[in-house]
Write a protein that binds this DNA or RNA. Structure first.
Lengths: 229, 229
DNA sequence: AAACTTCTTGATGTTTTCTTGACAGCTTAC
DNA sequence: GTAAGCTGTCAAGAAAACATCAAGAAGTTT
């Protein structure tokens, strides 16, 4: 898994010792970490860093923890796990009602923290449906890898689907021969425009109602191809 | 608010006293309640009652609590809040890793319980999928692990059932070879598509009326397999 | 321990996909 | 007008992917 895909965790805590502690625990797992030492910095970091989960200490110097939660909840659904020394029930209730997802009282077990982080991540990673490209009876559902023309299912070979997916994700824009060849076949095929033509032809036969006068996959002579918007 | 739209809570606990206690607390709020006094009844009720949230006691007479969580998670994403007297960290970690959303140690405060229920409800306003897949005479009941074809029960091996369950929970979507291999056999088998083919073949022999022309498990050449919707 | 089920693995034949070459149509340049 | 270059189509052989059978290994139950 590449570094970009690691779950992102934002730690908002003013105590250096705790930040170090959390850093030690969490960096042994596969997480991408970011830290903020007060409420305002935390709110800014939440917007900039776009964490998948926030670990929030309630006792911040500049802002009340509840305030931070409420400000976050004005625009973000990111899971918030509160870490606090206050174990009075009212504090927990207030934080949870303000929009926190979980509340852990210090000192807490490392295993429990990790388990609760995983539980929160599990919930929030529930996949977001990708948009479906639709145009003139052609429909491409990228999540289901399903292509339909006039409602009828079309079966594409892996290569054909790769090309079409590339075009859908860049719908309306011209894709040069080199771009398509590089993406689908790899750099080694840069000087082989023939394979691309054959595949475009096959693709058109499958998704165009009149392959000799294509409406979806338009050729831009001398440059490449373009998928009509 | 009409009675049909109230959040539905299922309580799985063997102790009458606790059920009474929870009933008292929760019926003062706007909840629709249902109770089960052992694991099997709880699993059945989860399928029939379709709760928005489950309060689960770990110490059940017939099934281990972790087992209940895992069985539920085979087909349902419903939030599970564990209520337990065991406050050892290992118990919490095991429950959370098995798929629980929260863990409360008895005795707990009423306010905290309500707050945690609200927190769980807040983020789980999503649709619950039907636990029973039906299509062209093939029926898969994930809650009972029961597969029937034209009403007749089919006996599957554990591996075959795992594959089918994976496909049912992603019905309509293409599952790549790697996805299936990773989920069913583990990462070590990623480069062994042969075992998958053998098992798909066996599965088809059992659930397809004409295995050579499959209607349910469609192969997407070069990619994987897909369960017809 | 025997009987049974399930899993794994190898061998073999089939199907699908990929690559490549031949050729024809079209456009542009001269 | 014609040559050159780009483009589209068809078809055949090669390569890869797939399905199925069957036998032995491993694990379970009786």
């Amino acid at each position: 898994m590449s570094a970009e895909n690691l779950p992102r965790i934002l730690i908002i805590d003013d105590e250096l010792a705790i930040r170090r502690f959390l850093h030690t625990i969490l960096s042994s797992e596969d997480f991408s970490l970011h830290e903020a030492e007060n409420g305002h910095a935390g709110l800014a970091a939440a917007a900039a860093f776009k964490p998948d989960i926030i670990l929030l200490d309630l006792g911040l110097p500049d802002l009340d923890g509840i305030e931070v939660i409420m400000r976050l909840r004005e625009w973000s659904q990111v899971p918030i796990i509160v870490l606090s020394v206050r174990e009075h029930e009212n504090d927990k209730v207030a934080a949870l009602n303000a929009g926190a997802d979980d509340y852990l009282t210090k000192p807490f077990g490392v295993g429990e923290l990790l388990a609760r982080i995983r539980a929160a991540l599990r919930r929030s990673l529930q996949e977001v449906p990708e948009p479906i490209y639709t145009c003139n009876g052609l429909q491409v559902d990228l999540t289901r890898r399903l292509v339909t023309i006039q409602g009828e299912e079309v079966s594409l070979t892996p290569t054909e689907y790769d090309i079409l997916r590339l075009m859908v994700t860049h719908a309306g824009k011209v894709l040069t021969h080199s771009q398509i060849l590089k993406q689908v076949w790899g750099i080694a095929y840069l000087e082989q425009p023939h394979v691309l033509r054959v595949n475009i032809s096959n693709l058109r036969r499958k998704i165009e109602s009149d392959p000799s006068r294509p409406r979806h996959i338009v050729t831009e002579p001398g440059v490449g191809y373009r998928l009509t918007l």
